[in-house]
Structures are given as structure tokens and as C-alpha cells.
Amino acid sequence: MTRWLPRTYLALVYLLVYLPILVLVVFSFNESRTGYSWEGLSLRWYESLFNNRAMVGAMWNSLWLALSAATVSTVIGGLTALALHRYRFRGKKLLNGMLFVVMMSPEIVLAISLLALFLLVGLQLGYVSLLLAHVTFCLPFVVITVMARLSGFDDSLPEAARDLGASDFTMTRTVLIPVIMPALLAGWLLGFTLSLDDVVVSTFVSGPSYEILPLRIYSMVRVGLKPEVNALGTLLLVFSLVMLMLSQWILIRSKR
């Protein structure tokens, strides 16, 4: 009696979380046009998805944007974390706090302020504005991930490298970066996923010249959902599962 209660509760929770996803995956293979009844196994929606030029284009745009935003924010964020860890300087606490402000502030506020900024400086809305916006909200996550790794970092390692004849630059390249690499990768993956499924900020700062996937799907939903979206959802699910496994594998491999 006391045993099945928590188990049922747990099962219910999982069911609630995963059932919609399962339905999405199953219905992506459904022959039916409406998507409310099962009419047999088919790959037609996958086919139609790949034939949908606008959709595939938006997907590539999104992937490219996520890739570049994650990379840029990892470079800037990694260097920021290193500076915050290594140096004492005026305004260090302020800089640290500002990162949290970006992370904590509502996305809509960030979106509006970025849009206002871009309009003010006369930046054409498109890839560049999207990239700048995405880097902005990815940055604190990268910095925090890398800082966490650095807090457990043995400060005598750089000294040991210098002692053995490495210049500051060589030490950074051969010791510091390899040791914090797992955190850099984790930060990159985090940035990648954040960028890939962002809707709110992207809605404000994207222009007609550069359409990205979440916005494309959102606009499709409004005119009527096609089962193509199920197929796309399934592909994205598989993709994120692979990414997740990859990041876990990197973390496990780097565990000491």
C-alpha cells in the first residue's frame, strides 16, 4: 500500500512529461493528414518536410545562428571567466553581478531593450542583430559554467607549468584551456540549445532577411498545423538527445 503510492505518483509525473513527446514522435509517422487519428505508418511528412524549401532554409539558418552564437559566447565567456578568476580589478564584483542581471531579467525586457538599441544605432535586423542578441543571453551561462570549473582548479598548476619553462601563453594553451575544456564544451552546448529554441528575443530582433526555425514554426501554427511539424519536432528531439549524450560522455570522460 505505502509502496505503490509513491510509484504511481512517479509514473504519473513521467507520463505527464513524456506522453506529449511520445505522441508527437508517433504521429510524425502517421499517414493521416489531420493528425487526430491513426491511419497507418508512413514517412510522407518527413518527405514533405524536406521538400519544404522555406522550412529547410529556416532550419539551416537556425543551426548556423546557434553554432555561431554558441562559439562567440564561449570565446568571450571563457575569457571573461578566466579574467574574473585570475585577476583582481576594480569593478570585478559589478561585472559579475551584471552577468546575473542578464540571466535573471525577463526575456521580454531583454528583447525590447535590444530592439531599441539596434533601432537606435541603425542596425538592420537580420543575422547580425540575431547573433548579437543570442550572444548576449548565452554569455552569462557560459561564464558561470566555466567559473564553476575554475573554482575547483588547482592554482599551482599554472605555476608548475611556468616553473617547467612554459611562457604565460604556452601555459594557457597547454594546461589551463585543456583543464577547463569540459566546462567550455558544456557552456558551448548550453549556448547552442538556448539559441536554437529561443523565440521571445528572436521575435523582436529578427528581420525578413533571416528567418529562423522557431519563428517559422510559430507562424505555421497560427495558420494551421501540418503534421510536418511533428516530423521536425522528432528530428529536433533526436538531435538534442544526441547532443545531451555527447555532453554527458565528455563530462564522464573528463571526470577525475
Binding site: 599551482s156 598548476l157 608548475a160 616553473d163 617547467l164 612554459a166 594546461v175 583543464v179 573528463s254 577525475r256
Partner: peptide, 20 residues
């Protein structure tokens, strides 16, 4: 003189071996 140019080496208290 910076440490990398000194012909002497150190054994650290916590060894400071490169973990990777």
C-alpha cells in the same frame, strides 16, 4: 627573472600534476 627562465624547479606541496 620570470620562473620559466630560472634553471631551478619546484616540487609542489600538492604535487600540481597536470590532470589531463
Amino acid at each position: 627573472t620570470p620562473p620559466e627562465y630560472r634553471p631551478l624547479n619546484t616540487v609542489f606541496q600538492n604535487y600540481a600534476l597536470f590532470p589531463h
